[in-house]
Amino acid sequence: MAVSVAPQAPAATAKGSRRSKRGGMAIAERRAGLLFVTPYLIYFLILQLGALIFAFWVSFHHYDLLALDNPFVGLRNYVRLPANQDFLIAMRNTTEYAVVVVILQTVFALLLAVLLDSKIKGRNFFRSTWYTPSIASSVVISMIFLYVYHPTGLLNSILGLVGIHTTEAYLESTTWALPAIMFLNIWTTAPTFMLMFLAALQDIPKEIYEASAVDGASAVRKLFSITIPLLRPIIFLVVSLGIIGTFQVFDQMFIMTSGGPLKATLSVALLIYDNLFKDTGTVGVACAEAIVLGLVIFALTLISRRVIDTRIEY
């Protein structure tokens, strides 16, 4: 085994021989390190970097999964997007959906976490129960809400109990279909973020609250002048995860409404899927749409970082 590769050339003394032994071990360590990390390296080179480059390549071509020849079309797939009615509708629906869901689910998750962050009895029971909507799959949640939103389903039954009698078919209404799916997503995602807020809340030194209690601060005052400012880094994280998730919403629309009625719930992700599998010769378009969507998400994440300002001040 080669020995003298240690960073600093060792002096030829007794000390030096110990150094060179360490040099041999450093080589073994380097080899082991490279070997252990190889699975991720392969994953990165093929499934991330390779895929990303290939995505751009496909987006510059008129691409069909079955065609032998896929001609180069330059930026055409991108340039045509602003004139593509479906893309505009999908983008508007998705943005509207994302804005409402991200704001409300963050607020709701924070509220749940603040409520749970106390030494009250039964806290663990409530935490477990509240988290249930987040462990169910998107399919199960969609099935449940197909029943909830049915004209004679759970929602209208409950409304009937309080004297509002209606047989509105929420998912077949251009007015209600999108808000209905928004509601479902807030309901199912907020508990995940609740857990993240809860973990962060438990890291806030209790002395801060004790000090403010002595000053006679009210609970609401404490929430806005202590808790929320201290949670800014985690709020940023929750908002950016929310942006990434909501802008790619697919499952619920695909399962519950197929984008209808009259494209009222057509999301960009659903459009990409259709371009990829239902239409022919639009794989390049699907790629361009996905890349634009990715850039929008990236830009909005940066903006939200500016807005939330993750610095902590005292």
Partner: peptide, 14 residues
Amino acid sequence: VIPGFVFIVPRYIL
């Protein structure tokens, strides 16, 4: 943090 939808088409073709 790269949104997963960017990878769908290339990974599928791959």
